[in-house]
Amino acid sequence: MSIRTSQPSLGSEHSPDSPLSIHAMTVAYERRPVLWDIDLDITPGSLVGVIGPNGAGKSTLIKAALDLVPKLSGEVQVFGRPYREQRQHVAYVPQRESVDWDFPVTVLDVVCMGLYHTLGLFRPVNRRIRDRGMQALTQVGLSDFANRQIAQLSGGQQQRTFLARALVQDAALHLMDEPFAGVDAATEQTIVSLLRDLQSRGRTTVVIHHDLQTASEYFDHVLLLNTRVVAFGPTKEVFTPENLEATYGGKLTLLDQASQALAGHAQGVGR
C-alpha cells in the first residue's frame, strides 16, 4: 500500500551522503507520542514537502532533528554525521509566530543573526556580515526595508525576513516550518522561486506545508506524516488518493493505542 524509501535494513547504518537521515526516532510529549519510529533518508538536492494533518508531528520532526526537543529514542544524521558537528550546513526557518515581532530589532539585524555562529564570541557584527545580510535581503526583495523595525512589516514580509536569515547562512540543508502559512500571494511566489533557486544550486530543502492543493506543484518529493511516516518518495508516486486517505483518515488505532501506552511507561505516567 505505501511506498518506502530504498532504506537499508536493520542497524543504524545511514546513507552517508544523505543530507538528512533519521533512524528509528520516537518523540513524545507528556504521555502522547508525537512521532513514532520515524525512518527517513532525504535524497540530496531534493525539495521535500512534509504534509499531514494538525498534530501529526510535522514541526516536531524538524525540531527533534535539530535537537530542539528531546527524543525518546533514535538518531539523526546530517550528511552522515551527528547534527552537533554539522550545524553550519543546516539553516532553520521557524514558524513565524515563534517569536515576538514587537521586539526592538531591525530587519537587517534579524538577518545577520544567521551569521552569528561565524563570528564567535566578543566580536560585534561587522561590515562583511552586514553586506551579506543585505544581499540576502535583496534576494527576498526586502532591501528597502533593511532598517525598519520588524513590527512594521506585513506578515509576508516577516516570513521573507526569516527566509533571508536562512539564506544568508549559505547552508546545504534548509528546514522550513510552515513558510507559506498566512502569507500573501506575492510572498508565496517569492518563496516558491527561492525554493526552486535553492534546488537548482543543488541544495536540499525540507518544507512543512499545510496546503494539499499546491503541494504536488511545489515539491518533487513528499513526506506524508501522521505520527509515523505514511509514505515518502517522489511526489508523482506518493501523492496518491490512497496515501492521502491513510494520512488523514487515521487507520492506526492499534498502533496508536500500544505506542501511547509505551510512551506513557517510558515517562512514568502510564498505568
Binding site: S2, R4, Q7, S9, L10, D39, R228, K251, L252, L255
Partner: peptide, 10 residues
C-alpha cells in the same frame, strides 16, 4: 498493515 520491511520490525 503498515507495510514495514520484515527485517525492520523486530
Amino acid at each position: 498493515t503498515i507495510g514495514l520491511a520484515p527485517d525492520h520490525v523486530h
